[in-house]
């Protein structure tokens, strides 16, 4: 009997395969570990770590994921979702920046301690939207971990926030490295003749 093929499921599997390499987790871990390190070290080192995370993600996608899974261009519906995601993130970043700037200047909005909590909410929202629009389910969890660390920093102070960032960052790093090892074990670079 010829097997029936659920094409939507095939498309979903194809899409999620590109998130199975653990590189997103490693990148998000460097963001949290940067927040942990910043009060301890010169800001430059912390930002270098963040740049390292971004570089690891770009180079990893190019030299680890792509040779194993190949290059693919997704259809118009995925592209539309990606454009919507960019628009939403841009709006949220602008709204957050304006609110924080107004609060700093004391113009119009008097947010006081609420500024940090609003920031935590906005960051969580950005990651939740990203998870939704990318169909990247694990990111729903990461949104709460990252947003939660910012919330803890704002409500209980920097010391508590540093612990939250360290624990969250190490959890994400461990998850990312585990997924990366699993990905490398499962996918070899195919032989081309």
């Amino acid at each position: 009997m010829a097997p029936t093929v659920d094409l939507e499921r095939v498309e979903q599997q194809v899409w999620t395969a590109y998130f199975a390499d653990g590189l997103w987790e490693i990148f998000l871990a460097t963001l949290m570990l940067t927040s942990f390190l910043r009060p301890y070290t010169d800001s430059l080192w912390a930002y270098l770590l963040m740049a390292g995370g971004i570089l690891a993600m770009i180079l990893g996608k190019k030299h680890i994921t792509e040779p194993r899974l190949g290059r693919v261009k997704f259809g118009p519906s995925r592209e539309a979702r990606r454009s919507r995601l960019m628009a939403i993130i841009l709006i949220l970043v602008i709204v957050t920046a304006v609110l924080l700037a107004l609060a700093q200047l004391g113009v119009g909005v008097r947010m006081g301690n609420w500024a940090g909590i609003v920031l935590a909410g906005m960051v969580t929202a950005v990651f939740l939207f990203t998870a939704y629009l990318l169909n990247f389910r694990r990111m729903y969890g990461y949104a709460w971990v990252i947003g939660g660390a910012i919330f803890i920093t704002e409500v209980w102070g920097e010391a508590a926030g540093m612990w939250a960032n360290l624990i969250g960052g190490l959890l994400l790093l461990a998850t990312g490295l585990f997924l990366l090892a699993q990905f490398l074990r499962r996918h070899n670079v195919p032989e081309m003749n």
Binding site: E66, K73, F74
Partner: peptide, 20 residues
Amino acid sequence: YVVDSADYTFLMHHTGLTWG
């Protein structure tokens, strides 16, 4: 059918076929 375009590596990965 479910993507816009893809290369040989992608198709080898999803079909299990050899390059040849």
